[in-house]
Amino acid sequence: MSETTMNLTLKIWRQKDAKSKGKIVSYPISGISGHMSFLEMMDVLNEQLINEGQEPVAFDHDCREGICGSCSLHINGEAHGPDRGVTTCQLHMRMFKDGDTIFIEPFRAKAFPVIKDLIVDRTSFDRIQHAGGFISVNTSGNTQDANSIPIPKADADKAFDAATCIGCGACVASCKNASAMLYVSAKVAQFSLLPQGKVEAKDRVLNMVEQMDKEGFGNCTNTGACEVECPKGISLENIARMNNEYLKASITREA
């Protein structure tokens, strides 16, 4: 537990709004403890900027424990920074060294336009879910008993693993094609593994992929950067499963 602190240079993307042009601005910062989270370091910077009468850097964040998916940031060219299996809010400053220069940019993709500084618009993700990311069941006090549908543990576990996607968009930001295949496939795979989801499986995959294309996301060329940068370890296997579902559906769906 050393109490030494770091002095750093931050190179941060500043952009007033969606219409304005952005640029990288340099900020020196000192006295940063290794026990701070990356976003707490950003808090220190913002407090400093406010005290100097400048506008603080806008960034999305909420739960600060790696589950809400709000935080983003491309840090030194990597979505959620240099650590693995964490979101930016769980990244700690001990991953950096005294004297480091850190580049901080928004997630970049045509389908994620910048709103301000480091905040991007990810509502394209929501719209893909509106197209089919659900099972069509109304709320009812007479739904059949939960245990009337046994599900093999292996399937349930796989469905769960896919369902742990937090919708942060790191996969898109990391992909050279800005593809959303990992994100979309996680939802398609979750439901295709469960008997409840099979009824609408064909329409779901076709509609979600159609919406994904409409939003301007690129296609998948199996590079696998998304899986590496995904803070939740969502597997590339989901994309294979979605491709399989998609192929089946496009051949057999009745017009």
Binding site: F134, I135, V137, T139, S140, T143, Q144, D145, A146, I149, P150, I151, K153, A156, D157, A159, F160, A163, Q190, F191, L194, Q196, G197
Partner: peptide, 13 residues
């Protein structure tokens, strides 16, 4: 619980 299972919530089994 019935409702959530019907929606595809992957509870532990």
């Amino acid at each position: 619980i019935d409702q959530c299972v019907a929606q595809g919530v992957p509870f532990a089994r």
